[in-house]
Design a protein around this nucleic acid. Sequence first.
DNA 1: GTCTATAGCCAGATAGAC
DNA 2: GTCTATCTGGCTATAGAC
Lengths: 217, 217
Amino acid sequence: MTNSDRTTSTEASAAAAPGKEHGREPGRGPGRGPGKRERLVAAAAQMLHQQGVEATTLADIAKAAGIPLGNVYYYFKTKADIIAAVIEAHAAAIGSMLGGIQAGQADPAARLKALFATLAGENEMVARYGCPHGTLCQELAKHADGAGAPDASPLVRIPIDWAERQFAAMGRADARDLAIQVIAAYQGAALLTSALRDPAVLERESRRMAAWIDSLR
Amino acid sequence: MTNSDRTTSTEASAAAAPGKEHGREPGRGPGRGPGKRERLVAAAAQMLHQQGVEATTLADIAKAAGIPLGNVYYYFKTKADIIAAVIEAHAAAIGSMLGGIQAGQADPAARLKALFATLAGENEMVARYGCPHGTLCQELAKHADGAGAPDASPLVRIPIDWAERQFAAMGRADARDLAIQVIAAYQGAALLTSALRDPAVLERESRRMAAWIDSLR
DNA sequence: GTCTATAGCCAGATAGAC
DNA sequence: GTCTATCTGGCTATAGAC
């Protein structure tokens, strides 16, 4: 899916904060600096999304985070480790977005529609760079042979599982299939939206899915 | 979509033919050797699909085609040129696959179902590496700024346009939306199938779409 | 903990013999 | 047309001063 409204840890804040971050207040023990690691992960998430995994260099990430290249290796041993941290941050953001929807809506159909309403706010970004989660999954899935590449599949598995629970709560015996169908529809629309550079594709598909969910009650 | 049955120019034949290809028979004029360019494009299509654009090196392609690295530059000036040639080969293969369906089936709904029947033969490959066309679109769309990256959007636009004509022939006023919906559903299912490494996802979605097309008549 | 400098490797691209 | 050898630059990762 995508980073939600409360996406502090992934994309929204990445480009900002170019300061050098010296002179942090003491009292937090010999920790790893005030949010430098977080800034690196946020910058990495944005660069990976906009440029793709292979095209993004550690120098790109360090520069976007306002941190010298060599210092990156104090926080992450390899590039694969940074990617894994980005995946974890995305997974956490997805979980908290879904948790927020869950807390705010009692009706499962309303929850599913709330998900698409949230995603609708990112259509322009998706039209330019694709869904941050879907594209990451697709790129990493090719290299999942043996070693190296982290597993990004939770980024689609978490929303599928959540949607399945909603459909099950609606009394659908085919909840799993419906969940896969709805997440696939979103991912496919996101792909076409970015391939065709047309946010209207995703808008129309999202509206259609909302109507479809209503038709299931 | 994918390369069809008659995919000689794209993926199926790539890994074969490691010979050095000296001693070609004369009589074809000062052409560029018997199919060396074609072999390069076929090898490139396979490597781009399996490894992704950025991870694939010209040395990979040359090796897969059984051609020395330096010779690649006799046929293609840059890596971007090879990618463009791969896109053209894919587009040609898609066109000829759809043309074959068009010629073999008169009923538009039957044609649409024939498309999914053809695609069904590649589910295992898609589960491992994703849809060759969709993943290429997604990777190249990120870098479409200004210069460099060729445009892969015909790879989704051609099937959408074709599906639109079929839905229009079925008398549907919303033919364009239905076409986008059906291609998006396939692409999304392909993405989930490769992310989850489960060909059954694509199988189920394809069956569901075939039933859905029948329901439209 | 932070940062500069650089090692070591491998990519895309070129030169030029055959 | 074909192929070997190589240039140049940029990448990941490390060494080691501060």
